[in-house]
Design a protein around this nucleic acid. Structure first.
Lengths: 126, 126
DNA sequence: GGTTGCGTTGACGCCGGTGTCAAGGCATAC
DNA sequence: GTATGCCTTGACACCGGCGTCAACGCAACC
């Protein structure tokens, strides 16, 4: 499988795949022309990467998941290192959720206040 | 008031203040030496900027709030333009909260699965 | 006259995952 | 031969809110 095919099948770009390789996440053989050749198993790896990126992990965080997959596990998140990252990210997401919730409440308050004030200026139009 | 004093009183840096000015948010007079001179009212402006930045607004979004303050309002969020931005940001925050919540649930699921699988491998140690 | 301390402008760095362009190689099909 | 289409490496651009450094000016104090 060439890089273009892998990219399309994984729903990403050749550029991204080279970037992942550069950061030690994806592996490729080279054919006589210097083209990257991927076997089927890399498709799972790339999909794992994409899923985790979408969940807000950075490439460094994703490394243990890929290693876990390569070690023969059916999913990348069952190994101790992955679990540690998972826990950390879960805590981060939780904290950020709390922050965002606070922000939302403040925004709601300001919006309500603004509307209230406008009604004071134009009272009883009915 | 010089830039250093304003920065300290507003809890930010001189660099940031110059940046805000460059983007049309903060205004300064110049004294004979070319130093920026701020009057007291700029302190409120800068504090408004900081608060909104902390709530995830970009500098462009903050502009109407500053204009609202300059127009003599006691708070920056009571003007129509500010309210529009407020609504938009509120929607964004809501959407992001939903996304993050989904992410959290998936992470929780994976964590639970990983722990479950580990127990299968080391059953009944007691 | 020198040090210290405030200010000035300009410009590069950062973070992270890409898009995109340049300049090239090799192959297949016409 | 040449047009097309895959691939290669390398490098710059992006976003946004600054940090930070350079090189400088002016003032006050010793």
């Amino acid at each position: 499988m060439l890089i273009g095919e892998l990219a399309e099948r994984a729903g990403t770009s050749a550029r991204a795949l080279r970037y992942y390789e550069q950061h030690g996440l994806v592996r490729a053989q080279r054919d006589p022309h210097g083209y990257r050749r991927y076997d089927e198993s890399e498709l799972r790896v790339v999909r794992e990467i994409r899923t985790l990126l979408a969940a807000g992990f950075g490439l460094d965080d994703i490394r243990p998941f890929v290693a876990c997959l390569r070690a023969g596990n059916t999913s990348g998140h069952v190994c101790p290192d992955s679990v540690a990252v998972l826990r950390r990210r879960l805590a981060e997401v939780g904290a950020y959720l709390n922050e965002l919730t606070d922000v939302r409440e403040r925004l709601r308050g300001q919006l309500a206040e603004a509307i209230e004030q406008r009604e004071e200026q134009c009272p009883k139009i009915r």
